[in-house]
Amino acid sequence: MTGRRPAGTIGAVTGTGSEYEYAPLRIPSGTSRSAAATMMALQSDVGGWELAHLALHADGTRKVVMRRRMRLSYLPGPVV
């Protein structure tokens, strides 16, 4: 389990040379579906992030990848 981030944390915001930057987010298993949707809606409203990928794992954790255009980099990063 070394090298893993704790649940509910945001990894490094990265740009892959494209016009988007990406921020991985892991939502813990105890979080309800409506709470997770609210968290992602707040990210969208505050920082210009949009949902790029969502995966629900067997243990109930959600792995979310948010993205935004590079030109919006002056906006704040994702909020945990």
Results as ranks from 00 to 15, higher is better:
R62H: 06
H57A: 03
D59G: 05
Y22K: 09
R33K: 12
M40P: 13
I10Y: 04
L42F: 04
L25S: 00
D59F: 06
P28F: 03
G60A: 10
Y22E: 05
G8F: 13
T2G: 15
G17E: 00
H57P: 01
S32W: 07
G47M: 09
T16H: 04
G15A: 12
T9D: 03
D59C: 03
I27H: 00
M70K: 13
V80Y: 06
S44G: 15
Y74K: 02
Y74S: 02
S32M: 09
S18F: 05
G47H: 11
D45H: 00
E19L: 07
R33Y: 08
L51F: 09
I27N: 00
G17W: 03
A41I: 01
M40S: 13
T61C: 01
L51A: 05
V13N: 10
A58I: 10
L54F: 14
G30S: 12
H57F: 04
G77H: 12
R4K: 02
S29C: 01
M66F: 15
A58N: 08
E19C: 06
A58E: 12
T9M: 02
G48Y: 00
R5P: 02
P76H: 03
A37V: 06
I27Y: 00
R5Y: 01
M1P: 12
Y22V: 05
V13G: 09
A7N: 10
S18M: 05
M40F: 13
H53E: 15
T16S: 03
R4P: 01
Y22W: 11
A7V: 10
G3L: 08
W49Y: 11
M40L: 15
G60S: 10
P78E: 13
Y74G: 06
T2P: 15
G15T: 10
V13I: 14
S29T: 03
L72W: 11
G30T: 11
A12V: 08
G60P: 12
L72Y: 12
T2Q: 15
T9F: 04
Q43Y: 06
V64F: 15
H53F: 15
M39Q: 12
T14L: 03
A36E: 00
S18N: 10
I10P: 02
R33I: 11
V13L: 11
T2C: 14
R68G: 12
T31D: 09
K63Q: 15
Y22I: 07
T2V: 15
P78R: 13
E19D: 08
S32I: 09
P76K: 01
A35H: 07
G8P: 14
V13T: 13
P6H: 01
Y22P: 05
G30K: 14
A7C: 09
P24K: 05
V13D: 09
S18D: 10
K63P: 07
T61A: 01
V79P: 10
L56A: 02
A7M: 09
I27V: 02
P78M: 14
E50T: 12
Y74R: 04
T31K: 11
G77E: 14
G11V: 03
V65W: 06
